[in-house]
Design a protein around this nucleic acid. Structure first.
Lengths: 172, 172
DNA sequence: GTCTATATTCTGATAGAC
DNA sequence: GTCTATCAGAATATAGAC
């Protein structure tokens, strides 16, 4: 989508956009902020129960469904595949804060391994990525979320605190 | 990169490319095939030992390192993010065959769950994706491969064949 | 604030000579 | 097979009138 297309969609002439944005990348940055806000505003924090497996599933499910529902935003926010664009520091800070909240939630679930957040994010991104690339509009990888999170939780609660009694674990 | 850039790089004039390819997408398709071949040719099948955890780690490590070393190919082959392009059926079949070999390898490792290949691919893609997006040139997610594969293997050998005695499992 | 008009550069692609 | 010449259109961006 070009500036022409944007302008036409909102009933403007292309040059008029420059009254609002300095450049095309400035528009991308605004969209980045908007996308972050939209993602953060929908985060299901108030739907968490304190039951680790349930809560982590909710987080991953929210992320994957968001990405699958808005693949262009997924590309803009999480893939960094738009040629000349990278978000401004202020904009990037918003998504950083969101990631940190996920880290804190992992801690609250008894997962303190320092690599946990990286592995967790890789798992979520992988599910979203495959869902978008190989089954757009479907739910083939969305249906794997519960199992994937269980896999992650089992592994993390075993290797980091092997002496801790299993909490809230379920099979299937 | 435009057709002009390609032509200049190989010391040709842009129109001469059309003696070899019908369109820009035809070039993409040839690159897709070339990328598939390159990936397949380097697959470490002859380095597998029969020890499930080792072999699966080798496969994932090869995939992630390939993607991290060739991010443009990663985008072309596995991300499908190039605007007007999708591979021709003949080209796509090559990558399909590669994925099927991974599925057979999972079977050989005693993993027969039908969702295993999807979860495995999501895990590999997620690691590659995060590595490229958030630590290009580094190894932050590459270092997670061993743990991630162990997590996957443990989960798959437990949930699908819970009565099977653990084979080749190691901690850390 | 929004417009018309336009600059400049790049894009993929074609015609036709050699 | 490769070239020169060129097309038709799209891209981002600017100047200046209303």
């Amino acid at each position: 989508m070009s500036l022409r297309d944007i302008a036409r969609k909102i009933g403007m002439q292309p040059p008029s956009l420059y009254s609002y944005f300095d450049s095309k990348n400035a528009i991308y940055d605004a969209m980045y902020v908007q996308g972050c806000r939209q993602f953060v505003d929908g985060e299901p924090w108030d739907e968490l129960t304190g039951e680790p497996l349930h809560d982590l599933r909710r987080l991953v499910e929210y992320f994957v469904r968001f990405c699958a529902a808005h693949p262009a935003r997924y590309q803009l926010l999480f893939q960094r595949t738009i040629p000349g664009f990278e978000p401004s520091p202020e904009s990037f800070a918003i998504s950083q804060a969101s990631l940190e909240r996920v880290g804190h939630q992992l801690n609250r679930c008894g997962i303190t391994d320092r690599r946990a957040i990286d592995l967790f994010s890789a798992l979520g991104t992988g599910l979203a990525d495959q869902q978008i690339s190989n089954d757009p509009g479907g739910d083939r990888w969305i249906r794997l979320i519960d199992g994937a999170v269980e896999m992650f939780f089992d592994y993390m609660t075993k290797t980091t605190t092997p002496e801790t009694p299993a909490r809230g674990r379920r099979r299937r």
